[in-house]
Structures are given as structure tokens and as C-alpha cells.
Simulated assay, not measured.
Amino acid sequence: MTAGSASRVTAKRARHPGWAAALTGLLALTLAPGATAQTPNTVRVEPDGTVHAPAMTVPVSDMLSPEARAYVAEHLVQMQQPELLAQDNGVPIFMKPYLARQMELFPHERTDTTIAGVHAYDYTPRGGVPASQQDRVLINLHGGGFMGCFPGCAELESIPLTALGGYRVIALDYRQGPEHRFPAASEDVAAVYKELLKTYPARNIGIYGCSAGGMLTGMSVAWFQAHGLPRPGAIGIFCAGATMSSAGFGGDADYFNGPLGDARMPPPWPRPAPVEGSGLPYFAGVDVRDPLVSAASSDDVLRQFPPTLIITGTRGFELSSSVYTHTQLVRLGVEADLHVWEGLFHGFFYNADVPESRQAYDVMLRFFDRHLGR
């Protein structure tokens, strides 16, 4: 970028003045030589590296498919309508059309069941599990911030993989906050896992989830290690990483991806008061650096991970954690794949009509097919 083009970028007037603290890393690169701290539309950098950026306008990425471009615009508008974020029997209102569409697209059977005392939905392809998948099973850990979204998120994460991949997928209704506290969810996953080990060898069991469920996937592997359980054959940490912060998942994305991905303000800086732990009720009083919560805080825990698939988007507020988790896994010699979708946000693949979502399903299925039972 030339000095002239950088100055033109930073001189744009924003339609959303609340974005002044966002996109710090990116905007630091656009500071024109010779600009002064007194200029209103100039990036200001403090001695400790903290960046204060002016408001700016960010269009939807032109690298997206037409369907995805419309989807991003729709999502950002929806995120500013609180009534659409409310849950109706465990299904966020804005997700209902996505769920109805998946029901049309992906033939499947669902059994309401209980395994090892844990409520679950047991999904299979319509017509039954094919012979090629009879000896393999997936456990889904749904998203929802450890405060709901069962069955909504569980359905959206499970139905495509059972219908397209032929897998039996067991989605767990694990205990959540505010009624329950850590490690209740980890205990539930371990209980179901131990029960499935009576039927499936560990190498044939895959575990995956999005958002809170992606984080819980990593937490569960750490829990298995601490309690002498064998590691599963492969895991998928989607829309998440193996780290946590008081403002999200940690790193730069806590600040610049709230506005870009979900039309919400980044956390204030400096913080109004010292903040420790997580803002999620489920983790009240828990040290977010505990390896049973943030597995990436311990090399000893992380190096024992099974093959791991990480999926995120450049607008996902988990982006930094996803990238960091992958970097640490690779550093420690763990087989790990990272797939980042340009221009897309947290949990983007819930909409099955977007080509990029279908690409994500293909990546998930190829990964589990390659690793389970190997």
C-alpha cells in the first residue's frame, strides 16, 4: 500500500463512529508517513503498542460467493435486533430458517435418548448407517456460550454430517450455566465417552463442536487425560480455540472481530477495572488459564491431543485463538489442520445454502474419514 492510498483509507468518514477502537492491528498498517497524533483521522500508537484507530467503513469481502455476501449482510443486520437472538425452546429465532432448510436438504433420523445419564439426540442417516461407517461414531458438543442453544445449535451442527457423511452423530445436552458450573459439562462428555468405549474403540470415536462446543471439545480431551481415559481418534474445534479470556477467546480478535463479525462493540480499553476469569456464568470463579479450561496453556496437555481440525473465519471473534491453538499444536508435533474462511463470521456454516458452508462440511467429513479408525 502506498502512502497516498493509506492516507485515503484513513481519511474515510465512518458510518459507525463506535468502531474507533476496532481493527487495531490492520489500521496500524495504514498510518501514512508524516501523519500526526493530533489529526482526527490518524492512527495513534502508545509506547506500549496499544493502537487507537479512527472510525472506518468496512465493506463485505469481495472474495465471497454472492450467496455468502448476502448472508454476511443479513447476519450483521440480524445481530442488531435483540428479539432475533432470543431462544424459543432452545432455538435462537434467527436460526429457525437455517434449521428448517437443513431439515429439507438432509434426510436423517433422530432418536431422543439418554446415555450414561446424559440427555442426547442420536442422529443417523435416513436408511441407516452405511457399512463403511458402522464402526465409527461422532460426538457433537453444541455451541451456545454454555447457556443454551440445545437443540438448535446441536441440530445445525449434527444434521449435515450424519446425512452427508453417513455417520452416527450423538449430540449431547450437556449441563450448562447459570444452573451448573465447570466442570459439569466435561463430566457429562466423559460419562458418555466411557459408555461409547464399550462399543467403539477410542480411535473410532470423533468429537467436535462449534463455539462453546468447540472449546468444550478441547476441554474434554484435557479432562480425559486427567482421568486416565484414552484419547479419541480425532477432534474438531470449530468456531473456537483452546484458549479463553475475560473478553472472549483472547488475542487481537477479541477487539477487531466483534464489530466485523457480529455488529457489536469491542470491549473497552483500558478496562474500567481489573478483570479476571470469564464473563460466562458457567466459568464463575474459574481460572481461565487452568489447562482443564484452556488446554493451550499447557504444553504437556496439548502435545497429547489427537489429530485436530480447526475451522474459523476471518471475522470470527475466535480467530486469534484458533490460529494460536493451531500454531501451538504444530509446534508440539500434533497433526493439526487449520481452515480459515475469508470474510465469514462465528458459526458461519449453520446456513447450508451458502457454498462456503458446503465447503466446510466437506472439510469436516474428509478429516474424520481420514483419521477415525487409523
Rank of each mutant, 00 (worst) to 15 (best):
T2M: 07
T2N: 06
A3L: 04
A3I: 00
G4K: 15
V9T: 11
K12I: 11
P17W: 13
G18A: 14
L29Q: 14
T30Q: 11
P33W: 07
A37V: 12
A37M: 10
Q38F: 12
Q38S: 15
Q38G: 13
E46C: 06
A53Y: 00
P59R: 10
M63P: 00
S65P: 10
R69V: 08
Y71S: 12
V72P: 09
L85I: 11
A86V: 12
Q87C: 09
G90K: 09
K96Q: 15
Y98L: 13
A100L: 14
R101M: 12
E104A: 13
T114Q: 15
V118L: 09
Y121M: 12
T124W: 01
P125Y: 07
G127C: 04
V129F: 04
R136A: 00
N140S: 15
C149N: 15
P151C: 10
G152H: 07
C153L: 11
I159R: 08
I159Q: 10
L164Y: 05
G166Y: 08
I170K: 10
I170G: 05
A171T: 12
A171K: 08
P178Y: 11
S186Q: 15
A191T: 04
Y193H: 02
P201G: 06
P201T: 05
R203L: 01
G206P: 02
G206V: 04
Y208A: 02
C210V: 10
C210M: 11
A212I: 07
G214W: 03
V221L: 14
A234R: 02
G236P: 03
I237C: 10
C239P: 02
G241T: 07
A242P: 00
T243Q: 08
S245Q: 01
S245H: 02
A247W: 04
G250S: 07
D254V: 00
N257I: 09
G258F: 11
P259Q: 07
P267Y: 08
G279S: 13
L280Q: 13
L280V: 10
G285V: 01
V288G: 00
V288C: 00
V288R: 00
A295Q: 00
S297K: 01
T308C: 03
T312C: 09
G316S: 15
S320V: 10
S321P: 03
S322R: 06
H326G: 02
V330K: 15
R331I: 06
A336Q: 02
F345V: 03
G347S: 12
D362R: 14
L365H: 04
L365A: 01
